[in-house]
Nucleic acid binder design. Structure first.
Length: 315
DNA sequence: CGTTGGCCCTGATCGC
DNA sequence: TGCGATCAGGGCCAAC
């Protein structure tokens, strides 16, 4: 369930703790959390040991840490110039229940922890990064970096025009300065599917999951199954604007600091439920028209909407 | 090639 | 008290 805002909170909290840090040791408690990794757990562990993290970058719901190369000198940091351009990255996807927790080195390992990273930061000292994931839909991998087709930054958190191969097919998210709005609107129109399915298609626009899809559609007064081809460009622009508003509001409410991330036991979890107007609100009156919010099964997930102001319109 | 349905995965919760 | 059923859904891939 972590979507763009939750993943960004993780990235933002993680970045100051891991940028410039050296990975001293990796412990794989459950190899199923490496299902994205092309190789055995031993390969994952050996390639990370001694590596330096150059940044924490995010595109949509994907997070990655480019690995600096050329650590010939112990005093070198990725900023010192002794490092070359990264060629691979540690890729993270939280899936449904993944959390990345920053801990003290000697802190107790929480239940459901799948991966443990001992890191050493030049300023913050010895730290531990734990990957906790109940449902194991999330996973990590070491993946080669490749150039972005548009030469813009691969994601939020680094100016480098690089993106992991696993993330290359993921569209830029609506908060990315390089998000191509005209291309999105054009692609949306040519789709032959419902609007919610399109919003959830990460190859069209990334970062939106079930919760913020429902919230954005409510804000734009659109039914989840409204055919994309029947939506005017003007209406699609309005929807995109609502998507951005919803994501930004969640970001504002979930924004956290290094210290907060450090002690926050819930890590990436924690939805900003007090601001939800559709998701999980079934049976509650719509804030706009008072009709009761309905929940329907759609795409093997719940869709929450107002039957009064989110009506399916004739194409 | 665009679209769609199915599957993965497990702890918490609920009903009998 | 115990236990089976149910639920949550992002990403990927086979199939159409």
């Amino acid at each position: 369930m972590p979507e763009l805002p939750e993943v960004e909170v993780v990235r933002h909290g993680l970045a100051p703790a891991v940028t410039g840090a050296r990975i001293e040791r990796v412990i794989v408690l459950d190899a199923r959390s490496l299902k994205r990794h092309d190789g055995p757990a031993e390969d994952f562990v050996e390639r990370l040991a001694g590596a330096h993290v150059a940044a924490a970058v995010r595109r949509g719901k994907f997070l990655w840490m480019p690995l600096a190369i050329g650590s010939a000198f112990a005093s070198s940091t990725p900023e010192s110039g002794a490092f070359g351009e990264p060629v691979e990255a540690l890729v993270v996807h939280l899936g449904m229940s993944g959390q990345v927790l920053l801990r003290a080195r000697d802190a107790e390992v929480a239940p459901l922890t799948r991966l443990v990273f001992d890191v050493h930061h030049p300023e913050h000292g010895a730290l531990r990064v734990d990957f906790v994931d109940q449902r194991i839909f999330g996973s990590m991998a070491i993946d080669p970096l490749q150039a972005t087709p548009d030469a813009a930054a691969g994601g939020h958190g680094s100016p480098l025009p690089l993106v992991p191969g696993q993330v290359a097919h993921i569209a830029r998210d609506p908060l990315d300065p390089a998000f191509d709005e005209a291309r999105f609107l054009s692609a949306l129109r040519s789709r032959r599917t419902g609007i919610k399915r399109a919003l959830l298609d990460q190859t069209l626009v990334s970062g939106i999951g079930n919760i913020y899809a429902d919230e954005s559609l409510w804000a734009a007064r659109l039914h989840y199954d409204q055919p994309t081809s029947s939506i005017s460009t003007r209406k699609a622009r309005e929807l995109l604007s609502e998507v951005r508003t919803v994501l930004r509001r969640a970001l504002d409410e979930g924004g956290t600091s290094f210290d907060a991330q450090y002690v926050n036991v819930n890590g990436a979890s924690g939805y900003f439920s007090h601001s939800l107007r559709a998701y999980g609100q079934q049976g509650m009156p719509c804030e706009r028209c008072g009709r009761l919010i309905v929940r329907e099964q759609f795409m093997n997930r719940g869709s929450h909407f107002c039957p009064g102001c989110q009506r399916l319109r004739a194409a």
